[in-house]
Computed example of a mutant assay.
Amino acid sequence: MERRTFLRATAVGGTSAVLGGTLWRGAAHAAPAQPGTGPYGPLGAADANGIRLPAGFTSRVIARSGQRVAGTSYTWHHAPDGGACYADGAGWIYVSNSEINPSGGASAVVFSATGAVTGAYRVLSGTRQNCAGGKTPWNTWLSCEEVDRGYVYETDPWGVKAAVRRDAMGRFKHEAAAADPVRKVVYLTEDVPDGCFYRFRPSVWGDLSSGTLEVLVAGSGTSGPVSWAKVPDPSGATATRDQVPGAKRFNGGEGCYYAEDTCWFTTKGDNRVWQYDASARTIQLAYDDSLVSGTTAPLTGVDNVTGSSSGDLFVAEDGGSMDICVITPDDVVAPFLRVEGQSASEITGPAFSPDGSRLYFSSQRGTSGSSSGGITYEVRGPFRS
């Protein structure tokens, strides 16, 4: 997560020209985003939590690593990373990974209908460096190990059912996952400089115990048609990314988010946000900091990504200015928030509450710059719908 300079220097095929927007269907995010005025206006002064927000938004601290979650007896994990929210009656649950090795795992915080914290607990233990992951349509959390030949673990956000290791989803340096209920697949990113983009097709949708792991195959450019090929040996005895000739290489796969026939995923080595049009079976760039014209790129250190019901993408920075930036459907990119005084950290785990009124995220190493200094936040305000 802190290898951006090295990764950028080892980019594969990163200099190809982007094809014109006329190649693509007339949809949102049709061209690489450019800086502009965001939908929420300028950032204000830092609040008491050191967060700069637009007018009308407020923040609060939900949990701190190594300390009990307020109102509970549960001690929050170190290095909070990927996360997701789940409806829980009139309230909701926020699940968060722990990117430490050994131990890792994931925890959850429970909220009432008013947003009060009512509980916290462990949902996954005994795993390694759980970085990002993804939410399934059947309300489980896919927690991904960011280690060589790492696994995906399917966990229960309510902490009732035991977590299950999903071997069929492949062994590689997993980062994030995003479920596509239309094509009944799960997309997966790989966090290495010459990594690939995968999809897993379960034998039965809703059951990840068996299925077919496939890798995206394409040319060396940044846009155009793609195809998928079966990975012969998901066990990773031979690196998954090296098993299929012509597999497209991506420079450090990070966040992954699906909505409306599109899977957006990020690559940190070249500061790009990609979009895979699952209907047309094409890829293109939604953002590339090297293609920003006439000004300093507002989004660097591209990392975790999520989206809102308005079609806005929210992209977190690993380093950079410690921003979460918004990319609008009309291809404008602008800072949404900035965390001050935590330059040795990174922003992780952005996820919206089920009603879309609250955004959760963490500063993985907080003000201390150590995995024991993580802070998990909530931002509340007039998010557009």
Results as ranks from 00 to 15, higher is better:
residue 253 G to D: 05
residue 324 I to K: 00
residue 58 T to L: 01
residue 142 L to S: 05
residue 119 G to L: 02
residue 15 T to Q: 14
residue 356 G to H: 03
residue 193 P to I: 09
residue 224 G to D: 11
residue 181 P to L: 12
residue 105 G to Q: 05
residue 349 G to C: 15
residue 315 V to H: 04
residue 346 E to Y: 01
residue 94 Y to S: 06
residue 209 S to W: 05
residue 157 P to V: 05
residue 269 G to F: 02
residue 215 V to G: 03
residue 46 A to T: 09
residue 272 R to C: 09
residue 369 G to H: 00
residue 173 K to I: 15
residue 157 P to D: 04
residue 371 S to H: 03
residue 78 H to R: 14
residue 45 A to D: 12
residue 223 S to D: 07
residue 189 T to A: 02
residue 308 S to L: 04
residue 36 G to E: 03
residue 310 S to H: 10
residue 92 W to F: 15
residue 294 G to R: 05
residue 270 D to G: 00
residue 247 A to Y: 10
residue 69 V to W: 03
residue 380 R to K: 09
residue 261 D to M: 11
residue 182 V to T: 14
residue 360 Y to F: 15
residue 328 T to G: 13
residue 103 S to F: 13
residue 298 P to A: 08
residue 73 S to P: 01
residue 18 V to F: 15
residue 168 A to P: 00
residue 322 M to G: 04
residue 352 F to T: 01
residue 67 Q to I: 07
residue 74 Y to L: 08
residue 5 T to C: 09
residue 310 S to L: 07
residue 142 L to M: 14
residue 340 E to G: 03
residue 3 R to Y: 13
residue 356 G to F: 04
residue 239 A to H: 08
residue 329 P to D: 09
residue 43 L to G: 02
residue 241 R to M: 12
residue 87 A to Y: 01
residue 177 A to S: 13
residue 266 T to N: 15
residue 328 T to D: 10
residue 64 R to D: 03
residue 82 G to L: 00
residue 6 F to C: 06
residue 150 G to K: 01
residue 257 Y to Q: 09
residue 76 W to L: 10
residue 377 Y to I: 05
residue 353 S to Y: 07
residue 45 A to H: 11
residue 249 R to G: 04
residue 53 L to D: 11
residue 363 S to P: 09
residue 264 W to C: 13
residue 153 Y to S: 11
residue 215 V to F: 05
residue 337 L to D: 00
residue 53 L to F: 06
residue 97 N to H: 11
residue 290 S to I: 11
residue 92 W to D: 06
residue 138 W to T: 11
residue 74 Y to A: 10
residue 279 S to W: 13
residue 86 Y to H: 04
residue 270 D to I: 15
residue 319 G to P: 04
residue 317 E to K: 00
residue 25 R to Q: 13
residue 156 D to W: 12
residue 215 V to R: 05
residue 16 S to C: 15
residue 262 T to F: 00
residue 85 C to K: 01
residue 233 D to F: 11
residue 350 P to W: 11
